[in-house]
Design a protein around this nucleic acid. Structure first.
Lengths: 215, 215
DNA sequence: GTGCAGGCGTACCGTACGGTACGGTTCGAT
DNA sequence: ATCGAACCGTACCGTACGGTACGCCTGCAC
């Protein structure tokens, strides 16, 4: 089944990647204040080149988000021998990766940019971010969950529901609070608690979907 | 304990409220494209009046968000006689309210606006939205949870953790997907499933924190 | 060397929008 | 009737920014 957004390998030249890096840095620094002039100056290139390469401002933005989002590659979990311990470690690893990603400055910036974009009837960036963020984890996690069910280690009807519950248990209100700029949730604070949160979320997930849990 | 943001009753005149309504309508319609000229035209008032009343564009935006966010009033749940059934109904009611609010067009617009705002080193709107959204529910839910614990119906160490887990179980990935403009999640689709989701989330919450659950 | 493609830097244009100024109108107080 | 405050409508200003044009330089092909 084809994805709605084809994740192009969209090979950029090193020079172009330098431009995209500059654009991303500006996004992270100045928030939404990304101007073509600023990118050109930061990347030491001419605006004309930007327009030649990326068409318009939206094209540059899309290329930046897509290029960067695709770089978020989560380590693949070994699925070969699936005993209870290995399954638990895999789940924990997914939780850790998910929390690490969404609390990162780059992720926050990309999500904010995409949300802002979505507020203007443009959903392309949102789709890209979704596709490379939550949905990427889902694509990887679902097979593990189903393997766990086949091995009688997990119990659920819908792997989709199981995934979404996992997402909720892990992310809770952290992402929305970070996106809204909640100062009480400085990143160091969150990062320091990641291990504890990972363990708690995994415990809860197994309590709900472990083979010994009530159906 | 004082809140960081004082929820001013900030009494606006009817005429001013009409202006704020126009501003909100424009926000919902045109997304972020809120211009002072558009508000003035929609509200049949002069720009000069806008600046006189609200100072600048940011003031108008803040007033609009604050005024509207404060209008999201969730029904108070009866806490007088707390048997198992009443507790469960209360929890369900909170889940339903939370889901209903965050899937509403107004809430999506306000959250998007606040996120956009937060992307520009301004977090005031984010705080307002947080304070009147998730945190408002938290303030209401926590006493219920603690009463449930006192009545030996629930079991948990930290009511804060219990609340955040509840939030995660209910919201899951719905809010972020809506904010990102996920078309696969049309509102009617979500709204149609609210009751089932409410029941599932409540079941899971009691499975984790009910008195009979494993600690 | 000559020609040319790619790209840098800068100047420039048009427009959209935040913010201000001002004349005209309504309306209540005295 | 008169005055003044509030406010509407509109014209206007300044600026920021997206997008374009152009002159110049560099490096490569032949």
């Amino acid at each position: 089944m084809a994805l709605t957004i084809k994740v192009n390998e969209e090979t950029f030249t090193p020079r172009q990647q330098a431009v995209l890096t500059a654009a991303l840095d500006l996004l992270v620094e100045n928030g939404d204040g990304l101007t073509m002039t600023a990118v050109a100056r930061r990347a030491s290139c001419s605006k004309e080149t930007l327009y030649k390469w990326f068409g318009d401002r939206d094209g540059l933005l899309t290329a930046t988000v897509q290029w960067q989002a695709a770089k978020v590659r989560m380590p693949v979990v070994d699925r070969s021998h699936l005993n209870a311990k290995a399954l638990r470690l895999s789940i924990e690893q997914f939780a850790r990766d998910l929390l690490t990603v969404i609390t990162g400055e780059v992720s926050i910036t990309l999500n904010r940019t995409a949300v802002t974009h979505a507020a203007q009837e443009k959903d392309s960036l949102g789709i890209i971010v979704l596709e490379n963020g939550p949905l990427a984890i889902r694509r990887r996690l679902k097979p593990i969950l189903e393997a766990g069910r086949d091995a009688r280690l997990l119990r659920f009807d819908s792997s989709e529901d199981a995934y979404r519950t996992f997402f909720g248990l892990v992310v809770r209100d952290v992402q929305i609070r970070l996106l809204l700029g909640d100062k009480a949730l400085t990143q160091t604070n969150v990062v320091a608690n990641i291990e504890a949160d990972v363990k708690a979320a995994t415990d809860q997930f197994f309590a709900l979907y472990g083979a010994k849990a009530n159906p």
